[in-house]
């Protein structure tokens, strides 16, 4: 297929077919009925403190790894973490590239380079990681997401880069 003709993989449809073939009930994807809120960016990114939240199952050596069954916990990772102390564990994607170069799911070196070049004003002291693949949307909405918002707010983040897998 020519690259220009490629269409995005429809993961909702692929999942539906997989679950059908296994005799499972359909997966309950989150569909937001309300229009999204809008918070304008009011200053240049070179003056902004940027946060990073990623869902690829990233943990730091010495931390407890994530498990694979509705793990709604999160990890605190310093933005000055040595890159070679970062690990990846996940059931829903092939982690070989992430384990070889964590920046493919947790772009910490990329962000630090953009700060060093003045493109971004800085990073929050803390980044947060979690597992994703959590079957309970309610737990994410009512527990995990509010906790991360509160922590990022306390970090003084002007904007947050969200990196799902």
């Amino acid at each position: 297929m020519n690259a220009n003709e490629a269409t995005p993989v429809d993961y909702i449809e692929v999942t539906r077919r997989t679950y059908d073939s296994l005799g499972y009930p359909p997966y309950g994807w989150v569909h937001s009925e309300e229009p999204p809120p809008w918070t304008p960016l009011t200053k240049p990114l070179s003056d902004c403190r940027i946060g990073l939240i990623a869902s690829g199952g990233v943990y730091r050596r010495g931390q407890i790894a994530f498990h694979y069954r509705d793990d709604a916990s999160y990890r605190v990772i310093s933005s000055d973490v040595p890159t070679d102390e970062l690990r990846a564990t996940h059931f829903a994607y092939d982690t070989r590239d992430a384990r070889s170069d964590i920046n493919v799911v947790f772009p910490i070196d990329t962000l630090r380079a953009m700060v060093a070049d003045g493109r971004l004003g800085g990073l929050t002291d803390e980044c947060y990681t979690f597992m994703g693949g959590i079957y309970s949307a309610r737990r994410v909405r009512e527990e995990l997401a509010p906790a991360l918002v509160e922590r990022m707010t306390s970090q003084g983040a002007d904007a947050v880069l969200l990196v799902p897998v």
Binding site: Y93, S100, N103, V104, V105, P107, T110, V165
Partner: peptide, 14 residues
Amino acid sequence: LGHTTGQPHDPTGQ
């Protein structure tokens, strides 16, 4: 999946 912020060992592309 697993490459939302780039290809491995490709800091320029990332």
